[in-house]
Write a protein that binds this DNA or RNA. Structure first.
Lengths: 342, 342
DNA sequence: GGTGGTCGTGCTCATATGAGCAGAAGCCGG
DNA sequence: CCGGCTTCTGCTCATATGAGCACGACCACC
């Protein structure tokens, strides 16, 4: 035999084998006959072709998931579960797919939560809409952060919780309070109110939480709703805020950006969220990568539902911005994961 | 059972099964256990997913081929053989791949031709270069149409034939004549010359032909070489010429565009090419779709080596573009090439 | 309400495939 | 030229998979 460029020859053979196997669906035996090699060699050739990525198998379907990414995310961030959907180019479509996936997850999640704590926002509303009627039986729902009574489109927050409860044939308990109060005393007073206090107590006892997160910019629902001014947001950003989780603005290292503001924010606390057995974060889209990273790297969620771009962003090197802000010792205390430079 | 939206539910199940099978490579049994169906159902689900195109298997490799298209082409146009390569976005790259594929084909083609008739041009030169040294033993080569003595880069035509022969350890016989003569008498005289006549005779006896084709526009090698002026080309286009085959300009319906010019063109005739047992056309790229169609639909080649876009264009409805080209006249002729990524 | 047709199901069984192994074939430093 | 090394080859055998079949559910049309 000519000991010529065997490497290239083998590769070409592998390509031919792959074509015959996957496109012509011939049997490895037949391929062996055609390429004049034994069927075992054909098998090895195909294995090699798969390893070397010559053969690409892709599942093209809106409801497809990226299981490999899910596994990586779970491992890297110590999540109980992760759902990653393929990202369409269109952002609206992406949000819809992520929301759908969250609804699917909720439907099939076991054990079924007795009481589900929910936040509100555009994403959560989409999740609620994506849930099928009768998605569960007798799941009660409780709001975990202040509503959106000042909103131009009032009732969104309430509608979300109610819809989720209704579709499961359960009761919704709303939190009848603004999200952020102007004065600390007012907040304390409202918190002390029997009704509000009762709801908060109930929220603390929920067996699972479902929430999304907002970006720290002027497109936030908080600005839209009048709780914060663009100037407030600017101030928060200056303090390193990357976004809000159930109304509380956090920095990249997972801490409260502005404690004074946070004290006036009514609802479940970050620590309560962190301590929860099941806290499902639904988040997708490029602008939210930073918040998503902050939440996920600091153990604020136990289940993540997102798109593949976000997933990849989370898994890739945290990069410069994190190191800028997180050179305190705090990071190691709150981080459940370590970054390995692979 | 809830007789709910079973179609959608089945599809989703198929997607999940596909993920587990192809991405996680679990066994159908295991998948059955996970999805709570029998393993037979999993098999059926996967079959369905493949049918419905949910699973896309692709072979990504420069040397990959599109066997399905090859089969379709052979069937549709009664070819003895077809080679279709995937088309890269870059046109230069595409030409290279098609040429390589042609070289591969030549190497493995059986029976090995005793005498190979070749034309010349950019494509053929690339094929020659892509042939490995010692690609065969004792294959002699003969030029089948007039050379390019007037060329700015002289010797290309000769170099191509010589290189092919040399790499097979054979002899090259060149056709020492211009491609197109200015006067019919001159052509007849040269044709009558012992040497030239002998070579032509030899060319007629070749056991296989290898050639490409040019587009009827000013970028043609004929203009480059000075055999034709841009005005000549414009005239040809007006007569419906779509391109040239071994120097002879043909229309979309496979006939000689300008008999007077053709009479002055020296080399193998179209009928001789059509009658040949093996005539290998190497052609690729969007601008050449029209010529390719003309050649292939009128039996001028028995083997086609091309790219997948050209293949698809040939297989799709003949219709509009041909007629469009015919009446746009010069405009389409002078447009060197428009790359489109369809 | 019967009755034939179509569909989906779970099976048996033949076949295709991958794991694992023993021997052959290069490959190299003595 | 030789032993030790890795790499490749062709095999045996267990397992995974698809074809084909019989049965039951469902449906439409009498």
């Amino acid at each position: 035999m000519v000991p010529a460029e065997t490497a290239a020859a083998t590769e070409l053979l592998a390509v031919r084998a792959a074509e015959l196997y996957y496109e012509e669906n011939k049997t490895q035996d037949e391929i062996g006959a055609i390429l004049r090699v034994t069927r075992w060699k054909v098998g090895r050739l195909l294995a090699q072709a798969r390893e070397r990525g010559i053969i690409r198998i892709e599942i093209v379907h809106p409801r497809a998931r990226r299981l490999a990414l899910e596994r990586d995310l779970s491992a890297r961030f110590g999540l109980k579960d992760a759902v990653v959907v393929p990202a369409p180019a269109d952002d609206a479509e992406l949000q819809a797919r992520v929301s759908e996936a969250a609804a699917d997850y909720l439907v099939s999640h076991r054990p079924v939560p007795r009481l589900l704590g929910v936040s509100w926002g555009r994403t959560l509303h989409q999740v609620a809409e994506a849930l099928p009627s009768g998605w569960s039986t007798a799941v009660n729902v409780v709001q975990i952060n202040g509503g959106v009574s000042l909103s131009k489109r009032p009732g969104t927050a309430a509608a979300t919780a109610v819809m989720i409860a209704q579709k499961a044939g359960g009761q919704a308990t709303l939190l009848p309070s603004p999200a952020i109060l102007e004065r600390l005393e007012t907040k304390k007073a409202i918190e002390g109110d029997r009704t509000v206090g009762g709801v908060l107590g109930m929220a603390r006892g929920a067996s699972a939480y479902l929430y999304s997160a907002g970006v720290a910019d002027t497109s936030s629902v908080h600005v839209d709703s009048g709780y914060l001014t663009p100037a407030d947001i600017a101030g928060l950003v200056e303090r390193g805020a990357v976004g809000d989780v159930i109304g509380r603005y956090i920095t990249a290292d997972g801490t409260i950006a502005d404690p004074e503001l946070d004290a006036r924010t009514l609802g479940l606390g970050l620590e309560e969220l962190r301590a929860a057995a099941t806290s499902i974060l639904v988040i997708g889209g490029e602008p939210k990568h930073a918040v998503a990273r902050a939440i996920v790297t600091h153990g604020l969620c136990s289940v993540l539902v997102t798109d593949e771009h976000t997933a990849r962003a989370l898994l890739s090197e945290p990069g410069d911005d994190t190191s800028l802000r997180a050179d305190t010792g705090l990071e190691s205390a709150t981080t459940a994961s370590r970054e390995d430079a692979s």
